[in-house]
């Protein structure tokens, strides 16, 4: 598009291609995790987290291609919105999943929350963790 692409332009283009491909791969990683992990909570790890990095890479590519510092704050704000919302959604879904017995207990090596829930159910003090 440019009349004479300088080496710098080529470098920027190359960087943004890498960012785009890596960002899209993160989406694929989420999908593979969704398909391959056995229970809800491990799927959540795969589903929500790679998106954080994926969106960062894609927005970096947008910023690189626009070649302007003025757009950096908007892109940063878009990313920070994602940073603020993703953990909240993940926590809500994870908590609902744990409370409604969606967790496959045989897949957990340690479950220290279960001990607390059991002792609370027996009517012991809520803050006294067993042992």
């Amino acid at each position: 598009m440019d009349p004479s692409p300088t080496p710098l332009d080529l470098l920027i283009d190359l960087l943004s291609i890498v960012c785009i491909l890596a960002g899209c791969l993160m989406s694929l990683a989420a999908a593979i995790g969704l398909l391959r992990f056995p229970d809800l909570l491990s799927r959540m790890h795969a589903a929500t987290k790679p998106q954080v990095l994926g969106l960062l890479l894609l927005l970096t590519a947008v910023g690189l291609q626009l070649r302007s510092w003025a757009v950096v704050p908007v892109l940063l704000v878009a990313w920070i919105f994602q940073l603020l919302t993703v953990p909240v959604a993940a926590h809500m879904v994870g908590r609902a999943g744990y409370r409604t017995r969606h967790v496959h207990r045989e897949l957990l090596t340690v479950d220290e929350l279960d001990e607390v829930v059991q002792s609370a159910a027996r009517g012991e003090t809520p803050d006294g963790r067993p042992e």
Binding site: I20, G23, C24, M26, S27, A30, A31, L34, L40, R43, M44, A47, T48, Q51, G54, L55, L58, L59, A61, V62, A89, V93
Partner: peptide
């Protein structure tokens, strides 16, 4: 719901690209 969330993220990736 989780999968639908990821589908929206894939859509977002396409929009960003």
């Amino acid at each position: 719901v989780l999968a639908a969330d990821v589908l929206l993220a894939v859509l977002g990736a396409a929009l960003a690209t």
